[in-house]
Nucleic acid binder design. Structure first.
Lengths: 116, 116
DNA sequence: TTATCATATCAGTATGTAGTGATACGAAAT
DNA sequence: ATTTCGTATCACTACATACTGATATGATAA
């Protein structure tokens, strides 16, 4: 029973999910300036080590990043320049049309019950 | 207490979230061929009416789509051609580099416990 | 070998959010 | 005025998944 046939749209949604999380997106943006070890990513993003590692696995499973073992380090890099292009395009969209993003929440949050 | 300052990255993640769900993505793709009423979207996507309506609200809050009232119908369209461009770019990425997407699951699902 | 370091894995918890069903709203048709 | 139709809203439930803390793994250094 091979998991199930996935439509192209389904796969595309999955691809976008790689970009749709703050932590993963931070990682991808850090990698835009070139390859980094896990430690460097942790440092730059301020995320916990296990969290970064978890997300990196996700990203490399999806082939958005590529891992290269170097001794006891692992160096990660974007798998394709177009990953960066996608980020740039999103930035443009945000600037020009999608300003409403700021307050976009499907189900409005309670005001004043900040949970921090 | 103004909700909280959001970083550009945070907003970008939110933007991607618009594309990162199968239902929303189906809606966006349906709209690539031109404006559609809610009913037409329901028909083309096979989603329930309330579900479509919920997602459309989300998408228009985020300015990814634009609503135009027409009598008792509402016609929706993509807010910018670059929304389509983003979809195309994602397709290219999938074809060329991100084939691993197919089995990408951060936490592996149980095999054989299909929930349909 | 043993210790140390870089990274990976995993269980558990908490939170976000997608989908449903019922209902409300407003516009047109009868 | 009443009904019908198209769409929007809402509470609720179920599920997906992000994060943590502890531990495992594997490579180098001592």
């Amino acid at each position: 029973m091979p998991t199930r046939v996935k439509s192209a749209t389904e796969l595309k949604a999955k691809l976008f999910r790689g970009f749709a999380d703050l932590s993963r997106l931070s990682i991808l943006e850090a990698l835009r300036n070139g390859p980094l070890t896990v430690g460097a990513i942790v440092e730059q993003t301020g995320l916990s080590q296990s969290n970064v590692s978890n997300h990196l696995r996700c990203l490399s499973d999806c082939d958005l990043v590529i891992a290269e073992a170097q001794g006891r380090y692992t160096r990660y890099q974007l798998s394709d320049p177009r990953v960066g292009t996608l980020l740039t395009l999103a930035e443009e969209l945000m600037r020009d049309v999608a300003r409403g993003i700021y307050d976009c929440t499907r189900y409005e949050e309670e005001e004043g019950t900040a949970h921090e």
